[in-house]
Every structure is written in structure tokens, then in C-alpha cells.
Design a protein around this nucleic acid. Structure first.
Length: 592
RNA sequence: GCGCUCGUAGCUCAGCCGGAUAGAGCAUCAGACUUCGAAUCUGAGGGUCGGGGGUUCGAAUCCCUCCGAGCGCGCCA
């Protein structure tokens, strides 16, 4: 796939210029080109693009940056892409492209349509993205949803950039929490049989969402469970409760349009044919990464029931962690970490060398040991990137929404989606860096104003589509498809020469670069910010038409100009729709 | 005490794995509707990028240190 990233195309030109200098003996052969970049300058007066090549290569070449810049500039002046080459500051080479180069970029965008911005950056490498992985102990709330949307968008983005992505959900269906879930459900079962259960005891789940589980059990089994000891009824009730909760979670995710390829069960790791946790520990022990030993007592907040005892430890300090980490609890069962090791080992065994985990920020202290485990499990060949998702503060018109976790009263994801819509939730969750706290204001996100970025961007798309509707009324014989190469070849795109038009085209041409950077950094929020900027430029250009009628999209007596402008609008809606699709947000044709 | 994530305009935040004179929105003030959607746009004021060192041709960005905030610190997940 040839890149549609015009910055990469120009970087190739710079590389060719360097090659020419190598041939001329001005640069040494095999010089390190890796730090050379071509980027848009902050100040438009510096041209369309700037390269740091002369400054970066100067040292190794043993030449002054400006002198080298002169030599490179001379080479860059050849060819038809670049119109103006200037040397500035300490050795920047500022490039101004010929308008034809921008027009070509515009044509590319329209012609590729939904494929514009796609790249083979990932080279088909398999990437495992694990996200949500919320405990099946209740419906999803607003906190879970940010990680869900983030993971989903990141997976979309990686897929778009040539990675083979598997989307996973790790179901924590083992351990003490789901046992407590089972006990809570059992109370609801007794309640359903007519018993007065009073208050739900501390430590259990008080939410009313478990009532249907109790009722279903009562309807199906009558009072059969009441006679049994806990050891007998618990697995049964637990399975029913988990099944019901996971069905809820899946429905909640579907409501957000968050997709997963695979739900992996923690319980299966232990209760399958093979105890994969024991197997993983044994395997690591053979490598010398697991041993029996003692840990120093924890610092900071004193632990009341601390007892010094020998235990099974993972040697995470060998991989940069602060202390070695226990794999078994005092009752002999595995720690969460031990199971997670087995789970990640499974990912590696399935062939993944790039792992991405999306976690809540409160799990930050867990990163080092998990990375250490992945190092040990893969002999250093797999890489784990953990994306921490900061907390969401739910507001209504600036006031915090009251929630009491103890009473089981929290605003569920479903309620939020029902109130403000999936698009608003998804876009806002991505309109912030993942590691920064996010304020989500239920009142603001449904505002129809510039203050609300969701609306602002979607309105940009709708406005673009309205141009087509109006244009077809004015010129009934317009081409059906502006992405048709024949239409594009015939259109007089060189008439798009106003500075405002070229500025909009430049922003459109930036899209592939933004996509690649966002994918490389695992930061989908960059797309959201880019779309906001793009919409902003479009709205600005639109308003120019108010006072300068010749800059309107539809020129009644100039069909040729109208077609050229429609191609520009086509590019705009193409990119807005593409970016919004990556974020999982609708691109509406009208906002009414 | 240690570790992690942070600290950018009055407020909310961007700042593209080191680039040139640090950007946007809100708020404030001043403007643009017989308009292809004014649900929008234009302009102005507003900054020691928490403080201080260091690396570099060049630092909001990398390193050290201090200050401040949030999160975490066997046998919860």
C-alpha cells in the first residue's frame, strides 16, 4: 500500500537528497537517518513543512548545519512537488509545496474514501488488546466505560493501521469477589422465597440488580437450596449469578458498540483440564523465576494481620520491580497475580508479541510486576504496554452527581447512554488523554454549541452533507459519485487556490499523519482533537462565504467552481466520517 | 517512607516519542446573519509551561532535585 501520508512522501524526497549528497561525498555512507523528520511548522510563515535533516545529520557529517542545509536545499529544489526551499534559524529547511502537490493530496483523499489514512504501519503484526475486564459483580458504571471506549477505539485504530488485532475481555470469575456475589445472590434467593433478609451485610453486594437472579433461582429450584450447606449451593448460585452479570455486561457493551473477539475466563485457567496457573508457576520455577522465600513487611500504612511466613514468590525484581510478588495466598489458593500470569502466558502462547492492557488508574501499582511477568514468560520477546485510564467525574451542569457505592447506588453506564446517547459518551471519553481525569457533564454533552465538541464535529459532517443536498438542487446534473476517478480527473481542482481553501486541504492532508502518530503512541484521543480542529477550519471557511460570496461552495453561474468545491467538501466529510468511525461515533447527515 | 500518573492562560485542556515567537475552547470585551444551516464565524486582552539545576545547536517535552495533587504499597481484583 503506497502511503497517503504526504509528509512521508516528502521525507522520502529528503532521503533521496541525502543519498545524492552521499554519492557526492558530502555525507558519509550509512549515515543514521532515523532522527530526521518532516513536520508541519507551528508558524505558517515557515512554509508547509520543515525538516530538521541538516541539524540532525550535521554532527555525524562533520559539517555545519547551515552549510549542509544549503547542499540539501539545492537537491530538494529539483522535482515538481516542492515549490520553495528556504533555510532558516539554526538549519531548518523550510519547504513550500506547489499547489499541485496539495491538490494531488486532496484527490488522493477523495479517491481513497474510507481507505484514506489507512496504512500498513503495523506490517500485519498481531496485537492483543485487553480492555474492560470488569468484574462480573454488577452492571457497568461510568468508570468502566472510559476504558471500554478507549480500548475499542485503540483496537479500531490499530486495525486501521495494519495490525492484526484481537480484542479480549478477561472475566474475573474466580476468587473471593465472585463468592461474595454468590452469597449476595443467595440472600436475594431467600428473599424471593418470601423471607425477610433485612439489610445486606457489609462486604456483600447490596444492589437490586441481583434480585432477578434470586427470583430465577427460586422459580427454578424452589426451596431446594435452603437445606444445603454453603459449599454445595455456592458454586451453583455463583455460576448463575456470573452468567447473569456477564449477560448484563455484554448488553451494556453492545449499547456502547464496544466489541470483543474473545472473553477469557479466569476460572477456566484453574478448572479446565489442566491447571494452567500451576503449570505456569512450574514453568517459571524451572527458569529460576519462582522460589520459596520471605518478604519484608510492607511500608507505609501498617498491615494489621501481617505475619512473616515463607511463601511462593515471583522474582519480579529481576525485571525491574521493587519487590518480589507472592503467587499464593495463605490459604493455599492462587493470588490474582498468579492467575494473570497464566492468562498472559496464554496470550504469548497464542503467538502475540505485542500486548496492550487497558486498566483503571488504581491498578497502576501492578504494572511493573505484570511487565516483569511478560518479560519472563516470553524470554524478553513480548512487549506489554499498559494504558492506565483515569477516573471519570460525573457532573450535571457543573455539579457532581451523587453516588453511594456502599448503598449500591451508582449511575450505571446504561443510564448514561440512555440519557445522552452513545455518540456523546464515546466521543467525550476520547476527548481527553487517557491518563488525565475527565469531567463528564451530562448537561453539557447534549448542548448544541461549540462548547460541546461532539456536536461541533458531527455538525461539521452534517453541514458538509447539506452542501451536497443544496448543490444537487442547484445543479441537477451533478456527478453521482465525486470519488469516481473520472470525475476527479475532469474536475478543475486547480481552481481551489484561495489561502483558506489550501489551508483546509492541508488539514485534510494531515489526517494520515495523525492516524499513524496516534497508532504508534496508542493514543486514540489524538484523532478526536484532530477532528475538532478540522471541523473548526471547515466552519471558519463556511463563514467566509457570508461576506465573500465567491468563496461559497455553490456558485450558481459557475458549475466548474462548484464541482471543485464539492470535491473539497467530499474530502472533508470523508475524513470526518473516517475519524468518527475509528472512534465509534456516528457521522450524521443532518442534525435536525 | 517507596513507587506510579500528573502540575501548561482566570477555568477546562491540547502540544505530534527534543524544534523556530507555547496553542484551542470557556469566560471577558468588541464585531459579523435579505447566509450554501449564525446550531457558525472574526478580532482583542490574558503565560517566569509548579520552583531550581543539568544534557543539547535547541527543552513544556529527556535527566536530577525540591514543592504540590491523585493513585498504589503480601494473602482484594
Amino acid at each position: 500500500m503506497a502511503t497517503s501520508n504526504i509528509f512521508v512522501q516528502i521525507l522520502d524526497r529528503v532521503r533521496k537528497a541525502s543519498d545524492a549528497l552521499i554519492a557526492a561525498g558530502i555525507l558519509p555512507a550509512g549515515i543514521d537517518f532515523s532522527r530526521v523528520s518532516v513536520e508541519p511548522p507551528r508558524d505558517p510563515a515557515h512554509g508547509d513543512m520543515a525538516t530538521n535533516a541538516a541539524m540532525v545529520l550535521a554532527r555525524e557529517a562533520g559539517r555545519k548545519p547551515r552549510e549542509l542545509a544549503e547542499a540539501l536545499a539545492e537537491q530538494l529544489r529539483t522535482g515538481d512537488l516542492i515549490g520553495k526551499v528556504e533555510i532558516a534559524g539554526p538549519g531548518f529547511i523550510n519547504l513550500t509545496l506547489n499547489p499541485a502537490a496539495w491538490i494531488a493530496a486532496l484527490r488522493t483523499a477523495v479517491q481513497l474514501g474510507p481507505r484514506y489514512g489507512k496504512s500498513d504501519l503495523g506490517g500485519g503484526v498481531r496485537v492483543n488488546v485487553e480492555y474492560v475486564s470488569a468484574n462480573p459483580t454488577g452492571p457497568m458504571h461510568i468508570g468502566h466505560c472510559r476504558g471500554a471506549v478507549f480500548g475499542d477505539a485503540l483496537a479500531n485504530l490499530l486495525d486501521f493501521t495494519g495490525h492484526k488485532v484481537t480484542r479480549e475481555y478477561y472475566v474475573n470469575d474466580a476468587g473471593a469477589q465472585v463468592d461474595q456475589l454468590a452469597r449476595s445472590a443467595f440472600l436475594r434467593y431467600r428473599e424471593a422465597l418470601g423471607e425477610d433478609i433485612g439489610e445486606i451485610p457489609e462486604g456483600l453486594y447490596p444492589g437490586e440488580y441481583l434480585k432477578p437472579v434470586g427470583e430465577a433461582l427460586a422459580a427454578k429450584l424452589g426451596n431446594a437450596l435452603l437445606m444445603q450447606p454453603e459449599a454445595e449451593w455456592l458454586p451453583l448460585v455463583r455460576a448463575k449469578a456470573i452468567e447473569t452479570m456477564m449477560a448484563t455486561v455484554r448488553a451494556d457493551l453492545a449499547g456502547l458498540n464496544v466489541k470483543h473477539d474473545l472473553f477469557s475466563s479466569e476460572r477456566d485457567l484453574v478448572e479446565g483440564n489442566i491447571d494452567r496457573v500451576a503449570e505456569s508457576i512450574k514453568w517459571l520455577r524451572a527458569l529460576g523465576c519462582v522460589y520459596e522465600g520471605r518478604l519484608p513487611p510492607p511500608k507505609g500504612a501498617p498491615v494489621e494481620d501481617w505475619e512473616d511466613r515463607e511463601q511462593t514468590l515471583f522474582r519480579s525484581t529481576a525485571f525491574g520491580d521493587d519487590v518480589d510478588r507472592p503467587l499464593r495466598k495463605s490459604d493455599g489458593s492462587y493470588t490474582y497475580f498468579a492467575a494473570d500470569i497464566a492468562y498472559h502466558r496464554g496470550k504469548i502462547e497464542r503467538g502475540f508479541r505485542t500486548l496492550i492492557d487497558v486498566w483503571g488508574a488504581d491498578h497502576g501499582g501492578y504494572i511493573k510486576r505484570m511487565k516483569a511477568a511478560v518479560q519472563a514468560l516470553s524470554d524478553g520477546e513480548a512487549e506489554l504496554d499498559v494504558k492506565l485510564i483515569q477516573l471519570v467525574r460525573l457532573l450535571r451542569a457543573g455539579e457532581p452527581v451523587k453516588m453511594s457505592k456502599r448503598a449500591g447506588e451508582f449511575v450505571t453506564l446504561r443510564e448514561v447512554v440512555d440519557e445522552v446517547g452513545r455518540d456523546a459518551v464515546r466521543f467525550m471519553m476520547l476527548f481527553r488523554k487517557n491518563d488525565a481525569v475527565l469531567d463528564f457533564d451530562l448537561a453539557k454533552v447534549i448542548e448544541q454549541s461549540r462548547d460541546n465538541p461532539v456536536f461541533y464535529v458531527q455538525y461539521g459532517h452534517a453541514r458538509g452533507q447539506s452542501v451536497f443536498r443544496n448543490a444537487r438542487a442547484a445543479f441537477p446534473d451533478l456527478p453521482a459519485d465525486f470519488a469516481d476517478p473520472a470525475v476527479l480527473a475532469e474536475a478543475s481542482l486547480d481552481r481551489l487556490s484561495d489561502p483558506a481553501e489550501l489551508s483546509l486541504i492541508r488539514q485534510i492532508a494531515l489526517y494520515p499523519r495523525v492516524i499513524e502518530a496516534a497508532a504508534a503512541a496508542h493514543e486514540p484521543h489524538r484523532i478526536a482533537f484532530y477532528l475538532f480542529d478540522l471541523a473548526s477550519q471547515f466552519h471558519a471557511f463556511w463563514t467566509l462565504g457570508n461576506s465573500a460570496p465567491h468563496l461559497r461552495f455553490i456558485i450558481q453561474n459557475d458549475r466548474q467552481m462548484t464541482v471543485a468545491r464539492l470535491v473539497l467538501v467530499q474530502a472533508l466529510v470523508t475524513v470526518l466520517a473516517s475519524g468518527l468511525a475509528l472512534l465509534g461515533v456516528e457521522a450524521p447527515n443532518e442534525m435536525r
